[in-house]
Amino acid sequence: MVSISAVRSAISRLQEAPARVRAVRQEHEAQDVELRNNPQLSDTYRRQLRKELHEVTIATPDQVDMDLKRIQTTLTSPAPADTRPSVDQLLDEQRQAKAWGRAERLLGAGTSPLEVVKDAEQATDLATLRALRTELPTWIVATTHGGATHEERVSAATSAKRLVDLALARTLPEGIERAALRGRLQWETHAPMVGVEMEHARRLLEGKTADGLGVAISLRYMSADAQALDTLTV
């Protein structure tokens, strides 16, 4: 089973990865400019030094990629098994079934999913939040108005699941279950940011055109999304 300290370490490495890739790319650009503009170097020696610099730098994204695979394994591992006595698990299932019945009636009466989730979080109602996590996405897909496409229904269900996960991540008591959930949310949020930086760096290092403005805009939106996790430390 993954430990809380392992999750904490993986999150730290994940959050540092974009800056690490960006720093390597910027350092390469600075050193390459210095080599190209050094009048004391012969053309042959300059080409050799630039080639060596490129070979060393181009390996860094691959090293980061390998580390990301290890981070992903840690942060997306299955939730720890419930080792409580079966009677306690059965009672929890019954509580969640009743909680979903109440929530479904509220939803059917016009209460928005956001309100239902928010009320459960404010009441620290873990039974309702767990039930919503299981049932709400399916309910949304089944009840979204007929004009919506399948993709729109799935998108709405995915957004609802994330809403519930964030509420649970803020509400669960300290322990491995909370750490595992917070770790997975951090991966889902920050991994795409690392991917954008990696692709940008690879294109530049390979001498291809890279859309710097597009990268900046993408990262800005992703960073805004990541702010929802700022207080969810492990």
Rank of each mutant, 00 (worst) to 15 (best):
residue 163 L to K: 15
residue 183 G to H: 05
residue 27 E to H: 08
residue 74 T to C: 08
residue 198 M to S: 09
residue 99 A to N: 05
residue 151 E to D: 12
residue 72 Q to T: 00
residue 106 L to D: 09
residue 147 G to V: 03
residue 61 P to W: 01
residue 232 L to C: 06
residue 8 R to A: 13
residue 130 R to I: 04
residue 217 I to P: 10
residue 211 D to V: 03
residue 167 A to K: 09
residue 133 R to A: 10
residue 80 P to Q: 01
residue 223 S to R: 13
residue 92 D to T: 01
residue 180 A to W: 03
residue 176 I to Q: 14
residue 191 A to S: 15
residue 17 A to N: 04
residue 107 L to R: 06
residue 153 R to M: 07
residue 63 Q to H: 01
residue 149 T to Y: 08
residue 133 R to G: 10
residue 39 P to N: 03
residue 149 T to Q: 13
residue 230 D to L: 09
residue 125 D to H: 06
residue 31 Q to R: 14
residue 139 W to P: 14
residue 230 D to A: 14
residue 4 I to Q: 14
residue 204 L to I: 15
residue 25 R to Y: 05
residue 99 A to W: 04
residue 31 Q to K: 15
residue 93 E to R: 12
residue 3 S to G: 12
residue 184 R to W: 01
residue 21 V to A: 11
residue 17 A to G: 07
residue 67 D to C: 06
residue 19 A to C: 06
residue 121 E to H: 12
residue 74 T to Y: 02
residue 98 K to L: 14
residue 201 A to W: 03
residue 133 R to K: 12
residue 154 V to C: 12
residue 122 Q to M: 12
residue 38 N to D: 15
residue 25 R to W: 03
residue 208 K to E: 11
residue 52 E to W: 00
residue 194 V to K: 10
residue 12 S to Y: 02
residue 144 T to Y: 10
residue 141 V to E: 14
residue 67 D to W: 00
residue 65 D to S: 11
residue 8 R to I: 01
residue 186 Q to L: 14
residue 17 A to V: 01
residue 186 Q to V: 11
residue 29 E to C: 10
residue 30 A to K: 15
residue 180 A to F: 03
residue 179 A to T: 01
residue 29 E to L: 15
residue 209 T to D: 14
residue 101 G to P: 12
residue 102 R to T: 01
residue 64 V to S: 06
residue 139 W to D: 08
residue 41 L to N: 09
residue 133 R to M: 11
residue 145 H to L: 11
residue 86 S to T: 00
residue 122 Q to A: 13
residue 1 M to L: 13
residue 133 R to F: 10
residue 155 S to N: 13
residue 119 D to S: 09
residue 58 I to L: 14
residue 97 A to H: 03
residue 211 D to W: 05
residue 47 R to E: 08
residue 40 Q to S: 15
residue 23 A to Y: 00
residue 172 L to G: 09
residue 35 L to V: 02
residue 188 E to H: 09
residue 225 D to A: 10
residue 97 A to I: 00
residue 223 S to A: 13
residue 224 A to W: 06
residue 228 A to H: 04
residue 24 V to K: 09
residue 68 L to V: 00
residue 225 D to H: 08
residue 199 E to K: 15
residue 164 V to L: 11
residue 82 D to E: 02
residue 195 G to Y: 04
residue 46 R to E: 03
residue 97 A to G: 00
residue 68 L to D: 02
residue 180 A to Q: 14
residue 196 V to D: 14
residue 187 W to S: 10
residue 189 T to A: 15
residue 169 A to F: 05
residue 152 E to F: 05
residue 72 Q to W: 04
residue 59 A to V: 03
residue 36 R to M: 09
